[in-house]
Structures are given as structure tokens and as C-alpha cells.
């Protein structure tokens, strides 16, 4: 791999991170090549010592997306961070994808249960219209479920927020394992 191959690959693999960040990092590598050439090394030797541009880009992207998710915990950012960490290797695929799916389905079902509870009085109305039958017990039960649904809704808002934070921390913990990072990484 020569200089331009290395830099082109790295640039392509770094798509999706902040432009300025990408440009500055590429400048670092470009300068590295120039210093190396001055010392009489060949482009191929320098590229070989630098290592694979793909794995460099993967690590950069994972750290970048986690930073993004930390500052703005939107669904898109969390998803990107998750994918980036999974992309680091099979080990991460196993220990990240599982908890991620479990967490998402738990939160999703919580929301569903809450919504069904809230609309349950509507079901009683539908029952009256369609089957033209009316049971007082159904109405009371529906009101009860509606109230519980509302409570659950409030709880779910907090649970979702909390879980998001926990998951992002879990992701950065993963990156630090891959980096072999020390405490506070």
C-alpha cells in the first residue's frame, strides 16, 4: 500500500465523522508520510508501520460516535454508536448486540403496555357500539387500566432516559476494553 492508497482508504472509511475532525486527522497522517520519506523510508514501509487504515478508522469512528451519543442521546446517534462499536470486532458483536436488543425490546414493550392501558376506555366504547353490550365491570376495569397506563407512561419516560445513559456508558466501556484502556478512559 502506498501513500495515496493509504490516505484514500482512510478518508473513505472515516466518512460520517465531523469534517474538520477528518481533515485534521488526515493531515496528521500526510505529515507522517512526509517525515518518513525525508528519513529515506519508502511509502510502502511507512504505510506498513502505520497499520491498517481500516482498523484505525474503526476505532476513530467508535470513539467519535460515542462522544456524539453522550452529548446528544438521539436514537440515531445511539444507533450509530452501537453499530460502530459492533464494527470493532466479533467480540463486541456478541457482547453489545445482545444487551442492545434486550434493552430495546424491554423498553418497547413497556411503551406498548402503557399505550394499550391508556386507550382501554376506547375499547369499552367500541364494545358498546359493535356488540351493543355494556358491562359496568368492563368500564371500571378500563378506567383502572387507563390510570395504570398513565402511571407507566410517566415511569417509562424516566426509565428510557436512564437506560439510554447506562447503555452509552456500556458502549464506551466496550471501546476501552478494545483499546485495552486503563481506568477513566
Amino acid at each position: 500500500m502506498n501513500k495515496s492508497e493509504f490516505l484514500t482508504t482512510l478518508e473513505a472509511e472515516l466518512k460520517g465523522i465531523d469534517k474538520q475532525e477528518r481533515v485534521e486527522l488526515l493531515q496528521d497522517y500526510e505529515a507522517h508520510f512526509e517525515f518518513g520519506l525525508e528519513e529515506g523510508k519508502t511509502e510502502e514501509e511507512i504505510a506498513k508501520d502505520l497499520g491498517s487504515p481500516r482498523s484505525i478508522a474503526k476505532e476513530v469512528k467508535a470513539s467519535y460516535h460515542i462522544e456524539q451519543a453522550k452529548s446528544d442521546g438521539g436514537i440515531q446517534n445511539i444507533l450509530q454508536a452501537t453499530l460502530a462499536v459492533i464494527g470493532l470486532g466479533l467480540f463486541n458483536l456478541i457482547i453489545v448486540l445482545g444487551p442492545f436488543l434486550a434493552l430495546v425490546s424491554m423498553i418497547f414493550s413497556g411503551w406498548i403496555v402503557s399505550f394499550v392501558g391508556i386507550i382501554s376506555p376506547l375499547l369499552v366504547l367500541i364494545d358498546i357500539y359493535i356488540a351493543s353490550s355494556f358491562e359496568l365491570v368492563n368500564l371500571f376495569a378500563a378506567i383502572l387500566f387507563c390510570g395504570l397506563g398513565l402511571l407507566l407512561l410517566v415511569a417509562m419516560i424516566y426509565v428510557t432516559k436512564f437506560m439510554k445513559k447506562v447503555f452509552i456508558r456500556y458502549l464506551s466501556y466496550n471501546v476501552s476494553i478494545v483499546k485495552g484502556g486503563m481506568k477513566g478512559d
Binding site: D49, G51, S52, I56, E59, V60, S63
Partner: peptide, 22 residues
Amino acid sequence: YGYELVQKISDQIQISEGTVYP
């Protein structure tokens, strides 16, 4: 400067030099 740091480290231990810049 960056290149100097990379060289000093790789003189002592085997590393993928590219990981230093990030």
C-alpha cells in the same frame, strides 16, 4: 512533534504506529 513521538515509542516497543495520532 507527532512523528518524533511515534518514532521514539516504536524504537522501544512494537506498535501499529497509526494508532498514536487518534
